[in-house]
Nucleic acid binder design. Structure first.
Lengths: 250, 250
DNA sequence: ACTATTTACGTCAACCTGACGTAAATAGTA
DNA sequence: TACTATTTACGTCAGGTTGACGTAAATAGT
């Protein structure tokens, strides 16, 4: 296969971000409006090419996050989602993108980025709507990111990443309900999260109530994984009867 | 940040494979011996650069798998693991690699690849041993792949990917025991897998016994996910008390 | 036949979950 | 002050799942 004239192909590498938050009772994702072709004027995930050929991927993700969103880097969770490399995903030239997912609390309107385009929170339901168009293959990436966060809430404590530093059990439950799009029984949820060692640490303080019994305030505990997991109620999305002999995930 | 002279950096993109199987009562991974510098003579994951600047990532993974291992492409599971892009992971130049994990049954010795180096199955325990040296950051990739397969067995039916087309409950249990490195109670395992709808489909045939009651033969069923999951017994690896404020997974 | 071995199925207590009842503690209002 | 609506915290109970372990069924070897 390698004849003497073959050279290693060099391609453009981008880093894109799926920044998720819970705002106004909805799971929202940060999208920017593209100022240049292709897809000028269309919404896209924040991101960009490596700054130079020595930049680390994780560092590039953090840089883009700071540049394009101006979000506080300290109060967030960031992990790699996966790489997307279909040959025709960018009409200009071959671009492979390494995507990251970030979970951020509902901060006081980060909105406009320090870079170029205007950033805006968009409910994922709207972003994934059949009529909505996103640049490149970003719609599929959004779908993957949403599925990632939904399953992460099942077996990790990362729901606290969407909460303020101190929060009530009801705050946490609303994060779960919003991300999953399901209503949960308050009593069973309370029993589960307060009964899981290391999930929550009571501050001793109480939330200033809006009427009703005051709620205890908690901070995130040391646990990162849930045992046993907290499973979504109607797991209709799972148990898919599809079978993939040779998978190369679709 | 983007001055007028800035150009999109173009980097070399590799695709590496973590091909896992269960052989001789051990989880083994396919490694090749490098014939060229850097790391000449050291063991490494099979893989290589994109064939051209238009090759799809998944297609490249399948091509490398066929080229370097000669494995039957049909009876396997292949999914992307993640991208690795530390700036110094290749001393020659910047190389970002997109890694894939493959689960293959214990085939009759695929061994030598059609390409260059000699391929060999290596128990992951040996590959991850402190004294073992692997090329590049491949040791870390192997560790990630092993953790991926271990957790995949918990909530999917992919253990059947390691089995021959028809297998017994004991075959399947030995896959779990080997991958997890734990012994499981035969009776509880039998109850669990036969009681999970869609996991196994009885062929009606019986295994030709080596003494002892003959075992029923099964084929993989239509289910892909397990509900509820089959959790590892000693979940010591989980519940790690480590806490990552800003994670960018380590 | 008899034994060792392996598979298949059963029992039981402990635990977890889902469904739902209820008391405790507040804000608002008469 | 008393009453009500609201919200949080805690309890009950049946059903399902798991872990530990007992036992019968079906084979190969002696």
């Amino acid at each position: 296969m390698t004849d003497s004239t073959w050279q290693i192909p060099r391609i453009a590498l981008a880093v894109d971000l799926a920044v998720l938050t819970v705002r106004n009772n909805a799971l929202q994702i940060l999208l920017v409006e593209r100022g240049v072709d292709p897809w000028r004027g269309q919404r896209a995930l924040p991101g960009g090419f490596l700054a130079n050929d020595q930049e680390d991927l994780d560092a590039a993700a953090e840089r883009e996050l700071a540049e394009e969103t101006g979000l506080d880097i300290s109060r967030l969770y960031l992990e790699q989602l996966r790489a997307y490399g279909a040959p025709d995903r960018d009409p200009r030239s071959r671009v492979v993108t390494v995507c990251y997912v970030a979970f951020v609390p509902d901060l006081p309107t980060p909105e406009a980025g320090g870079d170029a385009q205007t950033a805006a929170w968009v409910p994922v339901q709207a972003a994934l709507d059949h009529d909505t168009r996103l640049a490149f293959d970003h719609k599929r990436i959004v779908a993957d990111a949403v599925e990632r966060v939904r399953s992460k809430l099942e077996y990790t404590t990362l729901a606290t990443s969407f909460c303020p530093p101190e929060f009530t059990v009801t705050d946490l439950r609303q994060v779960y309900e919003t991300v999953w799009g399901e209503t949960l029984d308050q009593r069973n949820f309370h029993r589960k999260v307060t009964g899981t060692a290391g999930f929550l640490v009571a501050t001793g303080e109480q939330a200033t109530g809006q009427g009703g019994r005051p709620a205890a305030l908690y901070r995130p505990g040391p646990a990162t994984t849930l045992h046993p997991a907290m499973l979504r109620p109607t797991t209709s999305a799972n148990n898919q009867p599809r079978r993939i002999p040779c998978a190369v995930d679709a």
